[in-house]
Amino acid sequence: MTQVFAYIIHKDGVADDTALELIAAAKKIQADAQVTAIVTGSGSDLDAVCTEVAASYNEVLKIDNENLAYPNAEIIRALLLKMLPSDAILLVPHTTFGMDLAPGLSIKLDAAFVADVVEFEGLDGSTLKLVRQEYSGQVSTHVSCDISSGGVINIRPGAFAPDESKAASGTVVDKSSEAQGITVKRSYLETVVAEVGDVDITKSDVLVSVGRGIEDEDNIEIAHDLAEVLGADVSCSRPIVDSKWLEKSRQVGTSGQTVKPKVYIACGISGSFQHLGGIKGSPFMVAINKNSKAPIFQVADVGIVADILEFIPEFADKVKEMK
């Protein structure tokens, strides 16, 4: 049986949600998979995480080194190259860290690589069948992956329901010696925390959120008008910030803010997982999009197929009229 490993992301002594999602993913590959967690870090935070994940994993490999206090993917790649058996499957969360680590690691291990997997459909011999998405979720693909010489598989955060059974009580094995003598050509300096803006969308009850469908900077105005009559705030998807039409502090998503409003009105937003990843607490979601097949309609409560440039002003007028 192929050995399955999972890389555990953690912060401040607490394992990331993905830690339990990776077990669920591994069990979709092989129902009886014995999964080994790899936890790197330093000091008491690391110990706390190892104890936490040992309840859920069959084995926990702990690597303690002061150079690992911050997860520099260049160091961890060299470390995993030393540690992993040649035909192992390694599961990594498809986060900014996973994207940094995994593709290069697969080359060094001479293992197959698949990014951003959302579902597994079984292992047949050495052929792993899985599901991914392309074009920001507009279409899905079945993919076959030959893992005869191992596989590095990045798993989309949130795609697998966490395995909360805590049924493993694994042992923690100290592998810190493996981290000795690794030198790399990239060094971590510091993390610059994102600036806070004048509006704190994380506190808003109602958000009018605009995406690329707004088409032009001048049109942002119609979203502000609607927000005003609704008593809402304006938020947006990433392309709007990239174009400098709204400030970064209004961006919803994995690389922006995590919001938990009561009502979320998505206007001209396609519904990529990075955008949806920033919306928590299951708000009542309204999606307005001119493409009836936009993925946002799969997750919204109410959908309207319309051109937002026409619909939003009419909607705002109607609300005004009522007041």
């Binding site: 197959a112 690589f113 698949v114 069948k129 599901v131 392309e134 279409v139 899905s140 693909t141 079945h142 993919v143 076959s144 992956c145 030959d146 893992i147 979601m285 999606a287 097949k293 309609f297 799969q298 997750v299 919204a300 409560d301 109410v302 959908g303 309207i304 197929v305």
Partner: peptide
């Protein structure tokens, strides 16, 4: 070693109530 077998649109349950 990695091959796309086919393209499809997943059936993700009910989805939004369309107005």
């Amino acid at each position: 070693r990695v091959k796309v077998l086919d393209y499809f649109v997943p059936d993700l349950g009910e989805g939004a109530e369309m107005l």
